[in-house]
């Protein structure tokens, strides 16, 4: 883990350049360019809000903000996963020809999505103001859940990037996992809709703590409970440990399989 931090620091300029490359290519040849980074979440927000607040008729005030407070961090996670699976295989040219720590590629994938996440905070703030929801001071707490989520995402990224090198099915499986995960996480709905005796089931989801911390800070304007914050970091570091162990074990083999 220390090695990872050292590599990340030593190659920070490369990670940044690779992340910018990802974003640049994503928005290349589009008339609006980088504006899409702002527009995309905004349009998505409008669609989700209209669909779910009319169809599901849930009694949640300012449902848009309730939803977005978790949907935006979720999008960060889900997009990173989509990139992650391809981060080693997709950079086969570099891996086969240049000596560079393999870890820079998954890290760059996450970095690109952190930038996207930060950009989508702008339209979120705009919507909060437009809808007349308070812009709570607890927004200042957001770097903490963002850090926990990033640690978790990096771990998951390393895990799936490695697995996908050896079995390309993984890229497809990841999409399904993320989709299912989306529905079992109370993003669209509230955990309060379920009878008390079933709620413990949700606590098995390692992402629920960090997601709740986001919602507490953005939607409820309350500081998350200490246990929740601790749990989010415990889950994050477990994922990082698992992903990194697998990655370190096989990274020297990548060059033969990509």
């Amino acid at each position: 883990m220390i090695e990872l931090v050292r590599d990340a620091y030593q190659y920070r300029e490369l990670v940044w350049a690779l992340a910018m490359k990802e974003l640049k290519i994503r928005y290349k040849r589009s008339a609006l360019g980088f504006l899409w980074a702002l527009l995309n979440p905004l349009l998505l927000m409008i669609v989700y809000t209209v669909v779910f607040s009319t169809i599901m008729t849930m009694k949640i005030p300012h449902y848009a903000i309730f939803l977005l407070s978790m949907l935006i961090p979720w999008t960060f996670f889900a997009q990173s996963m989509a990139y992650a699976a391809e981060s080693i295989v997709g950079n086969s040219d570099l891996i086969k020809k240049v000596r560079v720590p393999r870890s820079v590629f998954p890290l760059a994938a996450v970095m690109a999505n952190i930038i996207n996440f930060l950009l989508s905070m702008i339209p979120l703030a705009a919507i909060v103001l437009i809808l007349g929801h308070p812009l709570f001071a607890t927004w200042l707490f957001l770097p903490v859940p963002l850090l926990a989520l990033t640690i978790f995402t990096v771990g998951a990224t390393f895990f799936f990037a490695t697995a996908n090198v050896f079995y390309r099915d993984v890229a497809h499986i990841v999409q399904v996992i993320v989709q299912v995960w989306f529905y079992i996480t109370p993003i669209l709905y509230s955990i309060d809709f379920f009878p008390v005796q079933f709620r413990w089931l949700f606590k098995l989801n390692p992402l629920i703590y960090v997601m709740n911390d986001f919602r507490m800070s953005i939607y409820y304007g309350q500081l998350p409970q200490a246990q929740s914050v601790i749990a989010s970091f415990v889950c994050g570091f477990l994922a990082l440990f698992l992903g990194l162990t697998l990655f370190r074990k096989y990274e020297s083999q990548f060059v033969y399989y990509v």
């Binding site: 490369l14 490359k21 570099l94």
Partner: peptide, 11 residues
Amino acid sequence: LMNGLLMGFSK
């Protein structure tokens, strides 16, 4: 820039 960074040189 990309090539140089990949070879381990700084920005």
